[in-house]
C-alpha cells in the first residue's frame, strides 16, 4: 500500500501554491501541519482528484489519481463541505453511498453503523441544517468512511470544534487508522501530536520537513529556553531570537525562545514540543 506523490506542483498565474512536492505515504496517520496559505488544502485537493496538478503525478499502487478505481479507494472530508439542507443525515449518507457505488441494501446497513459510530444515531432523521458544527463534522467523517477507504484525507477536520469534540474526533481517527493511509491537515498542533505517526511540515507550498515527532523535534532539541527578564531586555531578545511565548507577569516578562546558546542570565533549557517547532518554522522572524 503506497500513495506516491511525485514532484507535484500547482501554479496559479505567478503564485506557486505547491512546489514540487514529493511524498511516499504508507499505512498510518500522517499529520500535515502548516500555517494558513501553506498549500495544504491545495495538496489535498490534488490528492483527491478534484484539482489537477500543473505538473507531477499522484498514484496509489500504480493507479493514477484521475481513475475511477482510485476514487473507489478514497474517503475525503473537505474543510468546508457543502450539504443539501433538505436532506436528513441518513439521506445524505445514502446519497453519498450511491455516489460511492454502494448498493442500497448495504448502504443502509453501513450508514446506520457509521451513524452509531459517530454518535449521530438519534439524529438520523433530522435535517442537516439543524446540526451544530460538531455534528456536521461527524457526519462528514461518517460519509468519508462509507466505502471503507484505503486512503482517508481529512482537511482541517477539527476546525471550529470544542475541546470535547476535538478529543472525540481524535479518538475516532485513531480507532480507524489500522490498514489505512490517513492524511490529516490542521494547524491545531495538539491534534497531530497525539495521533499522527508521522508529521509533514508545509510552508509556502513546499514540504520543509517530515518524519516522526522525535525526528522533526530534533531540529530544535535542546535549543528551547525559558527566562524571566525586564521589559527592555525582553524587547532586545525579541529582536534577536525567535520567540515562542511572550507573557506579561507582575514585574517581568516571561519568554520562551529558540537559541543555539544560552540567551541570557537565568535562562533555563526546556524540552521542546511540537508547538515550539511550529512557531519556530512559521514565525515571521524566521
Amino acid at each position: 500500500m503506497e500513495l506516491c506523490i511525485d514532484r507535484v506542483s500547482k501554479i496559479y498565474g505567478n503564485k506557486i501554491a505547491c512546489d514540487r512536492i514529493s511524498l511516499s505515504l504508507h499505512k498510518g496517520v500522517y499529520g500535515l501541519l502548516g500555517a494558513n496559505g501553506a498549500g495544504k488544502t491545495t495538496l489535498m485537493r490534488m490528492m483527491c482528484g478534484v484539482l489537477c496538478p500543473t505538473s507531477g503525478t499522484i498514484t496509489f499502487d500504480g493507479i493514477d489519481v484521475g481513475k475511477e478505481e482510485y476514487r473507489d479507494l478514497l474517503g475525503y472530508l473537505p474543510q468546508n463541505f457543502g450539504y443539501y439542507p433538505e436532506f436528513c443525515a441518513m439521506d445524505f449518507l445514502l446519497y453519498m453511498a450511491a455516489l460511492k457505488g454502494i448498493p442500497k441494501v448495504h448502504a443502509k446497513e453501513k450508514a446506520s453503523e457509521l451513524l452509531e459510530l459517530v454518535s449521530l444515531k438519534n439524529e438520523a432523521k433530522k435535517k442537516i441544517r439543524t446540526f451544530s458544527g460538531g455534528m456536521k463534522q461527524r457526519l462528514g467523517i461518517a460519509q468519508a468512511m462509507l466505502n471503507n477507504p484505503k486512503i482517508l484525507i481529512l482537511d482541517e477536520p477539527t476546525a471550529g470544534l470544542d475541546p470535547k469534540e476535538r478529543i472525540r474526533f481524535r479518538n475516532l481517527i485513531s480507532s480507524m487508522s489500522a490498514e489505512k493511509i490517513i492524511l490529516l491537515s490542521t494547524h491545531i498542533v495538539s491534534d497531530v501530536e497525539y495521533i499522527a505517526d508521522k508529521i509533514l511540515l508545509m510552508k509556502a507550498g513546499q514540504m520543509i520537513h517530515q518524519g516522526t515527532l522525535d525526528e522533526i523535534l530534533s531540529v530544535i532539541k535542546e535549543k528551547v529556553w525559558e527566562c524571566r527578564v525586564e521589559k527592555n531586555k525582553a524587547d532586545e531578545l525579541s529582536e534577536k531570537y525567535p520567540i515562542l511565548n511572550f507573557r506579561n507577569e507582575d514585574e517581568d516578562i516571561f519568554l520562551r525562545l529558540v537559541s543555539e546558546e544560552k540567551p541570557c542570565e537565568g535562562a533555563n533549557r526546556t524540552e521542546a514540543v511540537l508547538e515550539d517547532l511550529y512557531l519556530y518554522y512559521f514565525n515571521e522572524l524566521h
Binding site: C48, G49, V50, N147
Partner: peptide
C-alpha cells in the same frame, strides 16, 4: 447548485461522481 453549496468537492472525489452521476 453543487458549486454553490460546496458539495462539488465531495461529489467529484467520489467513485461515480465524474461519470454516472
Amino acid at each position: 447548485g453543487e458549486y454553490d453549496s460546496g458539495a462539488d468537492e465531495l461529489i467529484l472525489s467520489s467513485r461515480h461522481g465524474k461519470r454516472i452521476l
